[in-house]
Design a protein around this nucleic acid. Structure first.
Lengths: 222, 222
DNA sequence: GCGGTTCTTGTGACAATGTCACAGACAGGT
DNA sequence: ACCTGTCTGTGACATTGTCACAAGAACCGC
């Protein structure tokens, strides 16, 4: 599916390119496949290409010295991973990394092609700037959450966000803690408290929501 | 100083523009002066221009519903404030705002001139992308700090960062708390503890460092 | 099955941080 | 001096983070 030029239909932001630009993109872009859990960029791994995701998701997370982590945001199909070009281009050492959360089909755009596209296409520029804006607002939201929001509310929100079609979550407490940037014990305690209230039931690697409405009411609380 | 075209010498990132590009910039850029404490952008204040700071600083901060705040980063002379164009261009409601921390001399670049410059100048593109990268890494560092670092260490670091030539800080505890995204009482307690150890002396609106070396040792601690 | 191993979860004790309610201290104006 | 608003100090308590450790559950080889 990625070796012809149909892949670009996955990118709503790139629909209105002029034929010449479209052509350039088709000629220079390199399809690639990344395996689940591959580290796409990270401390000491400079990236040379802009990444466009055709399928799958990439998780961007921050590591701390003490071993704790927090998920900053996810890049989904149809979006570009601007960090690979911009953030890693020059700046000081920081410890964010990007990991393929599933198998990923992606398009690599080399640096000079990227630059050419920025020069010739207003649509491409809009596409890139939207990506940047989205990432920055994502980071703002993360900061707001960790700096100002109560942990029980954040746990409740994650439960609702991550539940599947059967109101269940196949995650460990440790994985929840990583999402929230806190310690596993904190998550365990909150979940246990929710279980005590009858809002959910816990088993190994599985959380089943029994009263999503109640959880939702907590998640709404200021 | 801003009504001729000498202002551009303040911007190291814009030194190597070609004459034609330089000319465009000189013709279209609009000098402006912003008073101290002016709100440059914020919730419900869309901005239409890219801002280049000739002098002064702009503080970008996040507000919470509960009234607490945190400083995200500062824009200094010679830098561009990318949020004014990109972040506010479309996205959902968030509550960051930019405030002139001093009187500010700035250059406004209208949206279409900005776009033109992005199209024609590789140097200008590099300038803009560096600005974006810097902001994103700034935000990463803020997240790392508030999520993973101990408060006593963060207070110690701020003391060293903000001290003047006489090892003193003319700030209130409330202002320190805003920098750190915490409550005033927490800062007061930490400072009192430092005073007890003989590291500094406290008086109303003034902190005088007595043993910066000791404070530095704490600031270094993992 | 059985023992060994690893991953996951539970828990208590304690430290660090955040919240709330006040009181007192200080500076400036009148 | 008095009033007023701002700034600082403090105790009590709630929430969150850290540490140490134990118990359960899944998995594997045998």
């Amino acid at each position: 599916m990625l070796n012809d030029h149909t892949w670009r239909f996955s990118f709503p932001g790139l629909e209105n390119l002029s034929p010449a630009v479209s052509d350039l993109l088709n000629k220079q872009a390199v399809p690639a496949v990344l395996k689940k859990d591959a580290v796409i960029f990270g401390p000491g791994k400079p990236a040379e290409n802009l990444l466009l995701l055709g399928s799958g998701t990439v998780r961007v997370q921050q590591l701390s010295e003490s071993g704790r982590e927090i998920v900053l945001y996810r890049v989904h199909a149809g979006e570009s991973c601007v960090l690979t070009t911009a953030c890693l281009l020059a700046f000081e050492d920081y410890s964010a990394e990007g990991v393929a959360e599933t198998n990923v089909e992606a398009i690599l755009i080399p640096r000079d092609t990227f630059d050419k596209l920025m020069a010739v296409s207003i649509e491409f520029r809009a596409f890139v700037f939207e990506a940047y804006s989205k990432r920055i607002t994502d980071l703002f939201m993360v900061i707001e959450e960790i700096a100002f929001k109560r942990m029980d509310i954040r746990v409740a929100q994650k439960l609702l966000d991550f539940q599947d079609a059967h109101k269940a979550l196949h995650v460990t407490h440790q994985q929840m803690a990583l999402e929230l940037g806190t310690a596993r014990e904190v998550v365990s305690r909150q979940l246990k408290e929710f279980e005590r209230r009858g809002w959910l039931t816990l088993s190994r690697g599985l959380i089943e929501l029994r009263d999503p409405a109640a959880i939702g009411r907590l998640a709404q609380a200021s």
